[in-house]
Design a protein around this nucleic acid. Sequence first.
DNA 1: CCGCCAGCCTGAAGGC
DNA 2: TGCCTTCAGGCTGGCG
Length: 264
Amino acid sequence: MPELPEVETIVQGLKIAVTQQKIEQVKIYDPKVAKMLAGEDITGRRIINIRRRGKYIIFELNKGLALIVHLRMSGRLLYQQHEPQSNRWVRTVIKLDNGFLIFQDRRRLGVMEASCFSDLNCRLGVEPLSPEFNSDYLVQKLAVSKRPIKVFLMDQTIIAGIGNIYAQEILFAAGIHPQRQAVSLSNNEIERLVEAIKNVLMLAIRHQGTTISDFQNADAIEGNFQNLLKVYGRENEPCLVCQTPIKRIKQQGRSTYFCERCQK
DNA sequence: CCGCCAGCCTGAAGGC
DNA sequence: TGCCTTCAGGCTGGCG
């Protein structure tokens, strides 16, 4: 169930392993995936490159096609040398020259499809770690939004890759209350927010992402950013800065944890 | 146009 | 033990 840092970790882990390998066979065990892959036959194509866009994993294949994977809440992508024991969570097994790429998904919300990449790209906002994401960009987007800032940060058409955990960690780092209206942020707060977004995401990538319940990277290695979480999952525990108990509220049906003293 | 919410799915955990 | 509710790192379509 990954956000940007977890997806980035998976992509980096797969890069050397799968680049230039040929897809020899595709075994689909889930009718939903079968439907998603029905349009194009990817067998016989070569993986030219693998990269991340937002929370999407993109395998660029030859002849202009891409295999696009989104893990949603419970998906995993693994690479191993031997064919996996099939179990009820294995949705797809892709046999490459030298190993097996396995798509597992407990809740079956994930997406695996073969298509061209351009329509996906124009649905997504900027990459938060790119130079195009800066306070000028954010000022312009915040000015027209009355939504709570936490909900705003999770809007993939504005910034691609931030989800429920990192939105909260970012707002804590920036000292901004999650219920503040987007449009109400001052220039100073916007600067802090841009800094926090870049810093939190980069730090999380350095720590190979957050592992709670079942995130693993492509080699089934766990990340360790969960040890550095300051608010997420810490209801009633003391704030690491001021000792005030961390509060939990709901925003659009999802939990938000924050410190009401540090975040104004 | 904008913001919100149910629905998509399944499994784990907690309350009674 | 069993049943019921709630919750889970996401996104989409449809509604007001």
